[in-house]
Design a protein around this nucleic acid. Structure first.
Length: 120
DNA sequence: ATGCTGACTACTG
DNA sequence: CCAGTAGCCAGCA
């Protein structure tokens, strides 16, 4: 079972819930927004170990647009399918392309709103 | 405690 | 484009 999330992981999950349909965010960007610069791997680790059933986990991709899971794996296929279903198209042929054009789909959160969330 | 792995990423050659 | 490297550090044996 998933262990209790640390506060850092909780912030990551809270932010993830805000990523809108049709947009993606990179592991590193999510870490930055959560006030955890340089900790992209914590985002990956969190998605791997926590329960993401009610969260848009499929909107988290690598900084270069590829998906984090091993190409061709069940998880990779599902993430890709979910993204396509919400209009996120891949570079080149939708059937063979394996990268999301980040410039086009990356989430641009409202900075003021982010500060409201984590100000102390 | 110690060591390794991994849904990371920027940098170098 | 590919390979290696350096930071990163939670989770697990």
């Amino acid at each position: 079972m998933a262990s209790h999330p640390t506060q850092a992981q909780q912030q990551i999950l809270t932010l993830l819930a805000l990523v809108p349909c049709g947009k993606v965010v990179s592991y590193g960007q999510l870490a930055d927004l959560a006030g955890l610069p340089g900790r992209a791997r914590l985002v990956g680790s969190t998605l791997r170990t926590q329960n993401t059933e009610q969260l848009p986990w499929h909107r988290v991709v690598a900084a270069d647009g590829r998906l984090g899971l091993p190409k061709g794996s069940p998880g990779w296929l599902e993430q890709r399918q979910r993204l396509l279903a919400e209009g996120v198209l891949f570079k080149g042929d939708p059937l063979t392309g394996d990268k999301v054009p980040m410039a086009k789909y990356q989430w641009q959160p409202d900075l003021a709103a982010m500060l409201m969330l984590f100000e102390r």
